[in-house]
């Protein structure tokens, strides 16, 4: 289990992380989402032991990660910036990883190289960004990490390779690996994550099991025969967004769907539908509703 407790971090007076807490259950996939500058990469740098928090705790099954080499040997990390790998060929990188990670698995490496079709003797700086990502992923997964931390792992990958990446992750998680994935691609995250954490300006806005999160917030399409005061009708509901299209109202409500149904049945709706809410929509409405500038953060 990965536990982050009340972590604070400031850079020259700017508070990048504010009393941040997150919890990743063992054998689960945790999706870390947030806007640009929300602190995703900063918390990942703390989780990988690169940075030291000003206060708070970061524990992997009770062990602090900072300057803990034996713990770090169990952590697999694929950064977004892969420039460090550029001077290596795959063969050289394997030699280096093998000497650093005690659980290096040569057979797995060979199998993954085969699966990804990434046989190249060239330096990685001649690889495309997607190939570099694959190479880093293969190297990381070949260390058999107990904890996997990925920063934008599928950025630049084609759909087939994406599926392959998710396949390996899901397989290992099924074997007990704990994964934390930071990504902008909410659609992909929606399909794979067990729980989600939404970061905003260094703070954890929401951290929930994904199914719970979806059941807590509902998208309702409702219409009434008689016109009435919407405020009166929806009073008592936690409406975070309301949009009228003719007689039909589209509501985003942070309540249980049954509770909403009961409340609105009193006004005899001619239409009442609970529509599926995507993670993208949750993200948008939780972080500020329709005025939120989401065009840059949602692919």
């Amino acid at each position: 289990m990965i536990t982050v407790k009340n972590v604070n971090k400031s850079f020259d007076g700017f508070q990048a992380l504010k009393d941040l807490s997150l919890h990743v259950e063992t054998g689960s996939i945790y999706g870390l989402v947030g806007t640009n500058g929300s602190g995703k990469t900063t918390i990942i740098k703390h989780l990988t032991g690169v940075l030291k928090q000003d206060s708070g705790e970061i524990l992997f099954d009770g062990e602090p990660v900072y300057e803990n080499a034996s713990l770090k040997a169990k952590i697999g990390f694929v950064p977004d910036d892969l420039s460090w790998f550029s001077s290596y060929t795959m063969k050289e990188a394997v030699r280096y990883y093998r000497s650093l990670y005690p659980d290096w698995d040569k057979e797995r490496y060979e199998a993954m190289i085969q699966a990804f079709g990434l046989r190249s003797r060239k330096k990685m700086n001649s690889f495309s960004k997607g190939m570099q990502k694959q190479a880093a992923f293969i190297l990381t997964m070949s260390t058999h990490p107990q904890y996997l931390i990925l920063d934008e792992p599928i950025d630049g990958l084609d759909p087939i390779i994406r599926q392959l990446v998710w396949k390996y992750i899901i397989e290992d998680v099924a074997d007990g690996m704990t994964a934390l994935i930071s990504s902008h691609n909410l659609r992909e995250m929606e399909g794979i994550c067990d729980s989600i954490g939404i970061l905003d300006k260094g703070e954890m806005k929401i951290e929930r099991d994904l199914d719970e999160l979806k059941s807590d917030i509902n998208k309702i399409q409702v219409a009434f025969r008689e016109e009435g005061d919407p405020e009166e009708r929806y009073r008592g509901l936690n409406v975070i967004h309301c949009e009228s299209r003719g007689k039909v109202d589209l509501l985003i409500v942070r309540n249980d769907s049954e509770q909403i149904r009961k409340k609105l049945e009193a006004y005899h709706p001619i239409l009442f539908d609970v529509l599926p809410l995507t993670l993208e929509e949750i993200f948008i409405y939780e972080l500020g509703g329709e005025n939120y500038e989401v065009k840059d953060i949602i692919l």
Partner: peptide, 21 residues
Amino acid sequence: SYLHRTGSVMSVHSQPVTRSS
């Protein structure tokens, strides 16, 4: 020189090696 590039700093220091080592 790896200390002076953000990408290298992140990659190197996330590896299972202490700063002293």
